[in-house]
Design a protein around this nucleic acid. Sequence first.
RNA 1: CGGUGAGUAGCGCAGCCUGGUAGCGCACCUGCCUUGGGAGCAGGGGGUCGCUGGUUCGAUUCCAGUCUCACCGACCA
Length: 576
Amino acid sequence: MLYSRYFIPTTKETPSDAEVVSHQLMLRAGMIRKLASGIYNYLPLGLRSIRKFENIVREEMNKADAIEMLMPSVQPAELWQESGRWAFYGKELLRFKDRKEAEFCMGPTHEEVITDMVRREIKSYRQMPLNFYQIQTKFRDEIRPRFGLMRGREFIMKDAYSFDVDSAAADLSYEKMYNAYMRIFERCGLNFRAVEADTGSIGGSSSHEFMVLADSGEDAIVSCDACRYAANIEKAESPLYSVGSNASAEPLQKVSTPAMKTIADVAAFLNVTADNTIKTLVYASDNGDLAMALLRGDHELNELKLKNYLGWDEIQMASEEQILACTGSPVGFLGPIGLKQDIPVIADRVVQGMTNLVLGANEVDQHFINANRGRDFEVSGFVDIRTVEAGDACPRCDTGKLEMWRGIEVGHVFKLGTKYSKALNATYLDANGREQIIFMGCYGIGIGRTVAAAIEQNHDENGIIFPIPIAPFHCSVVAVNTKDAGVMAAAEEIYFCLEKLGVEVLFDDRDERPGVKFKDNDLIGIPLRIVVGSKGLAEGKVEVKIRSTGEVLSLSLDEVVTTVKQLIDTAFAHQE
RNA sequence: CGGUGAGUAGCGCAGCCUGGUAGCGCACCUGCCUUGGGAGCAGGGGGUCGCUGGUUCGAUUCCAGUCUCACCGACCA
C-alpha cells in the first residue's frame, strides 16, 4: 500500500472530548471518526485492525465447530414480546415503526432471532449439538456512551449461540467456547483474565467474562494470587471467616451517641473498633418491598448479591420516608431491634460469629451496645452480601489472597439453560420420540472494544504499539528522501519483495520531512519500520526499528527482506 | 434521568465581563527553501460565532427558551 495514495488522517492534537488513551489514539491515528454520540465511522486504518481481529475470532470459532451466519439488525417486536424482553429491556432497546405502523427494534443481541430460526429448523436430537455465530453490528441505546469504541451505541460484535439436547451437553459447548475465547485473546497478545460473572439481563445460570486488564477499565475484578479463582467484584464470593467468638454475652445496654451518625464516629465515641459494630442498611425494590441488611461496620455491601438473594428485579437504597416508616428512625441510628414493620433482615455471614455488638437503636442519638442475636434480635438469614476487598482470603483455596484489578470486558460467555428456548418453545424429539426443550448458551465478543482494549494496554507517549496480529500493517518502508532516486529505488525494491512474500507493507512514499513520517508511523502503531536513507544506503545498509522495544537493527540490503519476514513469522509462530 | 462544564474555521483555543459584523496556533492551498524525529520564510483560501426568539440604531457579546456534546453519578453483554 502506498501511503501517499491511502487515507490516514492523523492529527497532532488530541480532541478535547476524548478521555481515555485508546479513544484519543484511535482519533489521532485516523482510525475512527465520530458521526454522532456513540456512533463512529471506521476509517480505512481502523477497519483493517477490526478485520484482523474478526478473522482471528472467525478462525477460532470455526475451529470450535461454530458455524457462521448473518442475522438482520432490524428485528420484529413480536419475537421480543414472545420472549418477554420487549417489556423488560427498557430504553436501551431502540424501537421504531415501519410504514404500516408495525413495531420493530434495532437488535441489541440476537437470542430471539436465532432461537426463532432454530425452532423452525431443528426437530431432532440428531441435529445437535449446533453452534451458530455471526459478526454483526449491534445497536444499544446506552444511557451514556463514552470512551470511543469502548462503549458505543452502535458496535460490532461477534455473537454465538449453542443448542444442545441437555444440560451436560450444553456444558460441553460452553467449555468449547470458553477455550476458544482463551485462545482468541492469547493470540492478540493481551493481558487478560477470565472471571466468574453475574448474568445480568441476558439471564441464565452461570457465566464468565473475559477482562483485559487496564486501569481505565470500567469493571473491578479480583483474582487469587495462588489458585485460578477470579471473579468480577459484583460476583466475587466473600471468604468464610472463622466464626464463633468466645466472649460471653454481656447485658444489652442503650447508650447515648449524640450526633454520631457514621460507623467511624460511633466506634471512636464508644472506644471500640469498627469490626465490633454493625452497619445497617435498608433497601427497596421497584415495587416498594423493603429489606434490611446487616454488615460488619468496616465492610461494604454488594447490592447485586443482596438483589439476587432477594430475587428483586431492581434494588435501590430506601428513601428517607421508607426508612422512617419501617424503623421509626432517621439514617444514622438504624438497627434490627424494635422494627416498626416486619421486613426481612439479611445479615452477612460474617455477622454470624460476632457477639456483643454495637448497633443503632432506631432512635435519634441512641445506639445499643452488647447486642446479641437470638437474645436481642433475630435475622431472616445469613448470606454472603458483602463486597470483597483486596487482601481478602481466597474463597476457593487455603493459602491465596485476593488481588484487585481494573478490567475491560471484551468477552462474555453464558449458560442460558432453557430461558429462551422455553419462552419461544424451541423443542426437539429425543431418541424416545419425546418432545424436549433445547438447552442454550450464548457467547459474545466486542470486536471494536477489543481493539480499543489492545491499544489501552499497548501504547506509549508516541502512540499505539499494535500487537502484530491485529496491526493494520505488519511493517512499513520509509523512504527518508523521496527526491533521492537511489533511496526510492531501494525502498521500492524492498517494498515489492516483501509484498511478494505476503507481508502487509505500508510504503511511506510521501514527500514529507523524515520527522513527520517517523511520528506518523509511531502514532499508528506499525510494528516494524524499515528506514531507507541515503546515509545508510551509501554503506549498503537500511535500518529496521521494532516499535515495541525500540530496538534498531542495521541490515544489509540483501538480508533485510528475509530478516523482516522472519521477524513477522516469529511473531505469528505461536499462532497456528 | 440528576449534578458540572462546554458549543466561535477540519482540530486545539482566544474574544464576550465593558455590544460596533471575528482572531491565534495546527491543518489546508501557492511559491521558495529544507530532508534521519511533527523545520523556516512569503503569500492565500476557509466562519449562518449551535438554534429560535427578545432587548437595541446595531448582538458572537446582554436576556429568555431550546438543541447538542463532554465529564461525574445512577444504569448497562
